[in-house]
Write a protein that binds this DNA or RNA. Structure first.
Length: 474
DNA sequence: ATGTCC
């Protein structure tokens, strides 16, 4: 049944097979609840494949770390699998600065202040991009932004494939947008350019290249000691509103068709049903919002760099990709509907789904660590095809926010960020209490997660990104 | 993750 590889197992659940790509120890730490959830998901008709990455943990209805696949012809789409933070994902920008130029704590503080000035992180804050039409963003993503926000040095207008949303699809039946109530429109409009809270962040990092993949790093333009900007955010309240509206529509379709699983909260509809199409289209509007929002925040960070280090400071887009969505993809000769909930696509060199600039190397897969720990730039391997080229999306939570607050003291958290030392990771909040639930102890060890992904032969490491400063919402 | 309501 199971192979001898300690990094992979197939689990024979009552409703079907679950594939787990994780070291035995990580698998055993996941607990029984994740198997129950997998079994519920596997009860959805026509499902072809389901797997967990090593960072899998319990979510609402579906585990974070799930890849669930249907055939495109007889597929079911599930708002419960995608979740409410539709389009949540990562963006990485490369700067022309070296880490030595940020050596002084004072300078990192100045940079963080300059970022804070441009990107509100408070709960009900208004973003600074009110001159942008929300409808244009929802319909066209980056193409809906005024030209001044898309300078060629930053993301060439023609290289929209640097965001994998637009690489797949961004035009759809626009009449569905009218289904979302006006108050939600207004809220989403004022949220353009805001970070959100929870695990979302903007981080300044220093790159170190993995020797084994130096040839790929060079093709991507990465250098040792290079300063990078990583943005982790989603579709703010727009995605939640889409999830809520479609959730009830999809549930109605289910009762009409007499469908259901052991979990009444797990909703899904045939992709070609009206409810399925409405969801699919509105989901794309949320993907467009999310990618444009990350772009705008990275644009604001670019401005903050110029203010802090002079006008010659520049940042350019390496890549933007999501880990919460459902999308039609070609694998081999066939077309599939792939759901990724807290998993990252990592295509290998030569795969036709790669955006043009990365056709020969595979595209960068951006994997964040927890606060204070390194993030990774990965590239997919051809063996990753067995998992539809899905890898982990981060460290993965091991304890709840409340449990973390009980366990970790402010002092312990501060020392994990080396606060007060020369190499302190500068955080925008002076009081760290409100961020304790994001401390490294709330998460698995990202190095172990990456080891599992590498040993399961799904992807390899191209570079590691060490945090220098972080901006978080509360 | 989010906004809202007690």
């Amino acid at each position: 049944m199971n192979s001898n590889n300690p990094y992979y197992r197939r689990i024979d659940l009552p409703a079907g097979d679950l594939h787990v790509f994780a070291h035995d120890d990580l698998y055993h730490a996941m607990g029984a609840k994740v198997l129950e959830m997998a079994n519920n998901n596997l009860q959805i008709p026509n499902i072809r494949y389901m797997s967990y990455t090593p960072d899998a943990h319990v979510g609402v209805g579906t585990c974070i770390g799930t890849t669930a696949v249907w055939g495109a012809e007889d597929g079911f789409v599930s708002p419960s699998i995608v979740g409410s933070d539709i389009g949540c994902g990562m963006r990485l920008h490369l700067t022309n600065l070296h880490v030595d130029e940020l050596q002084e704590v004072k300078l990192r503080r100045k940079l963080v202040k300059a970022i804070e000035k441009r990107i509100p992180v408070e709960n009900h804050a208004r973003g600074y991009f009110s001159d942008i039409r929300l409808e244009d963003v929802l319909r066209k993503g980056l193409h809906g932004l005024p030209g001044k926000y898309v300078p060629d040095s930053y993301t060439p207008r023609k290289a929209t494939s640097l965001t994998h949303v637009e690489c797949s699809r961004f035009r759809y039946d626009e009449s569905v947008l009218d289904r979302i109530p006006m108050p939600v429109w207004h809220r989403a409009h004022r949220q353009l350019g805001t970070l959100g809270n929870g695990n979302h962040f903007i981080e300044i990092q220093a790159i170190s290249v993995n020797e084994d993949n130096r040839h790929i790093a060079e093709r991507w333009g990465l250098q040792d000691g290079q300063v990078a900007v990583m943005v982790h955010s989603g579709s703010r309240s727009w995605g939640g509103a889409v999830n809520q509206h479609c959730g009830s529509e999809v549930a109605k379709t289910m009762s009409k068709l007499g469908l259901g699983t052991s979990d009444p909260k797990l909703v899904y509809a045939p992709l070609d049903s009206e409810a399925g199409q409405t969801y699919s289209n509105l989901m794309y509007s949320a993907l467009n919002f999310a990618v444009a929002n990350r772009h705008l925040m990275a644009f604001a960070v670019r401005d903050a760099f110029k203010e802090t280090f002079g006008s010659q400071a520049e940042t350019r887009t390496l890549y933007d990709l999501m880990h919460n969505y459902a999308c039609e993809e070609n694998h081999g000769e066939e077309s599939f509907l792939v759901h990724r909930k807290g998993t990252t696509r990592a295509l290998p060199a030569g795969h036709a789904g790669n955006p043009q600039p990365y056709a020969e190397t595979g595209h960068p897969a951006l994997i964040p660590g927890s606060m204070g720990t390194s993030s990774y730039l990965m590239v997919g391997s051809s063996e990753g095809a067995r998992n539809y080229h899905s890898i982990c999306h981060g460290a993965g939570r091991i304890r709840s926010r409340n449990a973390t607050k009980q366990l970790v003291t402010v002092d312990e958290f501060a020392s994990s960020l080396r606060i007060g030392q020369e190499d302190e990771i500068v955080v925008n909040h002076r009081g760290l209490e409100s961020l304790i639930d994001e401390s490294p102890q709330a998460y698995k060890d990202v190095d172990q997660i990456i080891e599992s992904v590498v040993e399961a032969r799904l992807a390899t490491v191209v570079a590691k990104c060490r945090p220098l400063a972080a901006v978080k919402g509360v």
